[in-house]
Nucleic acid binder design. Structure first.
Lengths: 144, 144
DNA sequence: GACCCTCAGTTGGGAAATCGAACCGACGCG
DNA sequence: CGCGTCGGTTCGATTTCCCAACTGAGGGTC
């Protein structure tokens, strides 16, 4: 992780890992069950070399795991690590935003069990739905 | 919005708008109450020209609004539109991910009223906490 | 009015990332 | 042997990015 010029925060840190043009789309493809290079290539539309580099970086960052599933011919596929699975809420919120503000017709709907999923953020501590006005920042408590 | 080569989805559409290196950081700065160009510049660490271009694009995409608050000298500042405010859940989930997987020490804590906010995704329809295994995709219902 | 400062950009040129297309090597098939 | 597939890598051209310098409108001071 390089020295960042701006304010340090975990959003910037997260974007250092998955903030480029293709990473999140690659994670989306893997999460959709497309594990092989060619599938991810087609699903994302990324150039081969970019995808190759990104997958390498995501494996390095432990977002994806590369598994060799055949020796002859040598074939491997990509799977989500725990960190990768933890990106799914990010993808869901991004998709919800895109549905609302970046496309005319939402192309897919997520199903939660048998009904529509409407992703909603609540506070894990008190269970209450989160409204922007209720949230404030606290500097890191310097208690070592 | 250009023609995308890969699978069409709202995640890709969202990333077309805010998927570059500086957009989300700029939105973060504005959401933190830093509305002026110089503040956003310092907070993000972006080059001036990049930031200028990004802010222009975000205004164009109706994520930010530019308001002239002084004629002499001509000064304007940037505010979140409804679409911009709707990005806050994305930022929160990204921050939660970064806290967990991209930094050692979470530098800030969000407060919900007077206690720690732990962002959690629930289904808005049934209120149940969302687990990845419960979520499935449905193609767009072609019912016009 | 001369001088210097701030703020919000714009401009220019070089460095770096990105792109599409072509190529490569290991293998499988007939 | 010749062809096709899969998963990349390499190449050259294009695009984007970054940094530093400049602009331009105005303000503050003497």
């Amino acid at each position: 992780m390089s020295e960042l010029p701006g304010r340090f925060c975990s959003i910037a840190a997260a974007l250092e890992v998955v903030g480029d043009r293709w990473s999140l789309l690659a994670v989306r493809e893997v999460s959709l069950g497309h594990h092989r290079f060619g599938e991810i290539l087609e699903g994302t539309g990324a150039p081969r070399d970019r995808l190759s580099a990104r997958l390498k970086a995501l494996v390095e960052a432990e977002v994806l795991e590369r598994r060799q599933y055949s020796d002859a011919p040598p074939r491997s596929d990509y799977h989500l690590t725990p960190a990768g699975k933890d990106l799914l809420p990010v993808l869901r919120s991004l998709m919800a935003w895109g549905d609302r503000w970046a496309v005319e017709t939402p192309p897919v709907t997520l199903l939660h069990h048998d009904h529509e999923l409407r992703p909603t953020t609540v506070c894990g501590t008190c269970g209450e739905k989160v409204h922007g006005a209720d949230v404030h920042r606290r500097s890191n408590t310097p208690t070592t």
